[in-house]
Amino acid sequence: MRVQSEATSLSWIPSEAVKGYTRTMFEAGISHYDDPPPARIDDLERLRLADRFRFANRLHVWADFEDGQVVRHGTDGGGLMGSTTVRVGPLGATFAAIGLPDLRPEAEIGDGWIRVTQSAGGRTALPFPRKAAALPFARWQSPLVWTTLTVTLNADGRGEIGLTGASPFPRHWVYGPDGALALKAGVTDFKAWAAQTGTPWGAEDSPVVVTAAESALERELSRLIMRGGRKPLVRELATGQTLVRQGERGDSLFLLLDGVLTVDVDGRTLGELGPGVVLGERAVLETGHRTATLTAVTPIRVAEATADAIDRAALEHLAAGHRREENA
């Protein structure tokens, strides 16, 4: 029996993710943040030509099983680098990123399963000054970007995808074999990326916090919060800080831009939430009190918006799926 599956990552620069002096290039309009990629993909080349991602990594794996064992297998795919457009006034220029050789170690094969790993990426299009140990204590060089994907095939026909490593920046989204968004890297860290040391091409990957994808409704609401009429307040919290506490009054909405939060109700942890999730709607719709305690388990960035940023009917639809204490 032949079993096959695939995973594709798209990497992009989310709003306000850049730190330090490099941020001035984005604020001045010389470079640009990216709109989120689509919730479903079908043509990587078309997306690349439309400048919808900075780089992509696609891994397709097939295997033939006989009596529960792998007898043949194969792979295809690889990295696809995007470009960066720089504008100064009416003038603009586009620079291509530089891809590095794809890294695909020998497949792992076990009793009734096979797993293939692939790292793909390269050097970003534009260099910027980075600290160096020797004089002149700076060098013009762009850091590397990459993702490390896994595809596991099982003799019973199941396929599993994973994101096991990635550069700390930019944002990485992972799509499944049906082209639908499935996983996200939960944290972006521009400073750690700029000070980059280990990479897969130096036999050292970076661990990544992976979260599930948010709902299609939340993706639409996040666009309204960030691109609507009134600009939201963007806050940053350190690991361990509390965004809201159960029972306290509140009438604002939150969009988690980066990082991971835990949800606790009556002292019981119900789960973790990653970038893209919209929170706070139940306090707005119901009693005016927070129904859960939200605590940062990584450094987070969150956009806080007034309740009128989103239509009430949309909030009611969102709230129907957020009764986590009833689904636990």
Rank of each mutant, 00 (worst) to 15 (best):
A213H: 00
P105I: 13
W173R: 06
T269V: 13
M25I: 02
E304Q: 14
T24R: 14
L100K: 10
T188A: 07
E326M: 14
T148F: 01
G250P: 02
R139N: 08
L44M: 11
L279N: 01
G186R: 02
I13T: 13
V234Y: 01
V187L: 14
T211Q: 02
G68Y: 05
G276W: 00
V61N: 06
Q196K: 01
Q4G: 03
L10S: 01
K191L: 11
T94Q: 10
R130G: 06
L44N: 04
G274Y: 01
G110Q: 05
R223E: 12
F128W: 14
R72K: 14
D266C: 04
S5I: 01
L100G: 03
L217K: 07
M1H: 09
E6R: 11
T152L: 02
V234Q: 05
G79S: 12
T24N: 13
G112D: 09
E45A: 12
H317R: 15
L237C: 08
P200V: 03
R312K: 14
P177R: 15
L126P: 00
L221Q: 06
E286R: 08
A120H: 03
D308V: 03
N154S: 13
F95W: 04
P200K: 01
R115P: 04
S206L: 07
M226L: 15
S222E: 12
Q246H: 06
A138N: 08
A39G: 13
G110F: 09
A314L: 15
A133H: 08
K131T: 13
A138K: 07
Q241G: 10
S11L: 13
T242R: 09
G321E: 05
A132I: 03
W12T: 08
R171H: 09
G79I: 02
S9G: 08
T188R: 08
E218T: 06
L285V: 07
K231E: 15
A328E: 10
R230D: 13
G78L: 06
A138I: 12
L103S: 02
L279E: 10
V278M: 04
L103F: 04
V265H: 05
F190G: 01
D67A: 15
P37K: 11
G92H: 02
I310G: 00
G110H: 07
